[in-house]
Design a protein around this nucleic acid. Structure first.
Lengths: 226, 226
DNA sequence: TATCTCTTGCACCGATGAGTGCACTATCTT
DNA sequence: AAGATAGTGCACTCATCGGTGCAAGAGATA
């Protein structure tokens, strides 16, 4: 497969013993170990760069068990990445929550910017993002899903908030969607970009990140404050 | 090799016949055909995704000739990509030229933004950028070189210009480097990003691109105008 | 024409890596 | 304790792919 990740192998074997008593503990243990190992290796070396034998070795599990539990390498990959993606997308709403009720909008936006950058500028997140970009040709649907759930969701939430703030006159954002994009790229742009080209390079420290975020938000405010 | 692209195979066989009369026309023809084919395939399918036999077939050249002319696959790749990179970086200075002498700075910046986005938002450029990101782990030095020569050079040129404009009071950019980054990401951010996740997707049309650029530049001006 | 050089075609090597078959063992469940 | 179910180890298949060897032919040069 290469055009989707619907279930043709059991995506998760919840059906258990003959009379439901929960899944076999052995299965659980195996799946968990494989997932953990695969996660590490895929994130570090990509899809092509990771061998099934390698995963088996790191998980201390037989190669056969991997195939028994996950079908094949592609299924394993998509299942894992979708899992990460799910959790990655969850913070979106929460991130923007409260923005429209803020008394001090600038201050709230600065806090938001810092939170946002701090959340995104972590090795695991950046690696996931990079991994998905790397495999976007092989797994276009996956890339799409990720984009919708993670960065897309943040943009959407920001767009909504900015639209409201515009109506209220707290912000001058006649094109709230564009404003949301501007906000995102002002805050995240350079950090994300740099990492793509130098995945082994060091990330800016926390203070540096805060400065970057602050500068981005300040520029945004200067441009969009009513 | 994996840590550089210095010559250990003749990077270009300029030395010719016993008493210089220019290189053998056969060699030239072969090299050109291979370069053209490799360019197409690498850009479309990446390094891993492109087989040497495939290149030979497309170039209508024997596999052996590829090895005779380029040494090995890695050399072929780096030689090509460095070539593109060179030309990609040339427009940087030219792009920013004249900015500091502009009478109408906003207008000049808008023109610059449009040119910049139009230059970057072409399939070949985006594909090259993507290719380099894809292979940044395998060829870190290459990624570095590209970054320095292309986006880095634009940022550097903008930084210089903004610094001058700040001193003159035409712009309020106490941190010109940051301002340059903001300018770049405001104008290019969303387009570049979208393409990374959907390399097969359609690009915005020229008018749409101009709108994006204009919005970015307007935001920049609102934030940084003195 | 004679010679030198590059290209060709094709078989071949060696490594890697996904996925399978199978007999055996370990662990649950009843 | 007995039978089902899952995991193990290992050898093995098959395909892909980078790279090589070589003898013969085509083209360039003198």
């Amino acid at each position: 497969m290469s055009e989707g990740f619907s279930a043709q192998h059991p995506p998760l074997r919840i059906p258990a013993g003959p009379r439901d008593r929960g899944p076999d503990p052995r299965t659980l243990r195996t799946r968990a170990a494989v997932a953990e190992a695969a996660r590490t290796l895929f994130l570090r070396n990509g899809y092509q760069g990771t061998g099934v034998d390698e995963i088996a070795a790191l998980a201390q599990v037989s190669k056969r068990s991997i195939y028994n539990n996950f079908g094949d390498k592609e299924s394993l990959f998509t299942e894992l990445v979708l899992g990460f993606t799910g959790t990655a997308g969850q913070f979106a709403e929460q991130l923007v929550a409260g923005l429209t009720e803020a008394e001090d909008l600038p201050q709230e936006l600065h806090a938001l910017g810092r939170r946002h950058l701090a959340t995104v500028a972590r090795p695991e997140v950046l690696r996931l993002r990079r991994l998905i970009i790397l495999e976007a040709s092989r797994f276009p649907a996956l890339a799409d899903e990720y984009y919708r759930r993670a960065p897309g969701r943040v943009i959407a939430a920001l767009t909504e908030a900015f639209a409201l703030l515009h109506v209220r006159g707290a912000l001058r954002a006649p094109n709230p969607r564009r404003a949301a994009e501007h906000f995102s790229y002002l805050v995240l742009g350079s950090t994300l970009d740099t990492f793509l080209f130098a995945p082994e390079g060091e990330l800016p420290g926390p203070e540096e990140l805060d400065t970057i975020a602050d500068d981005g938000v300040s520029a945004f405010l200067a441009a969009y404050r009513a």
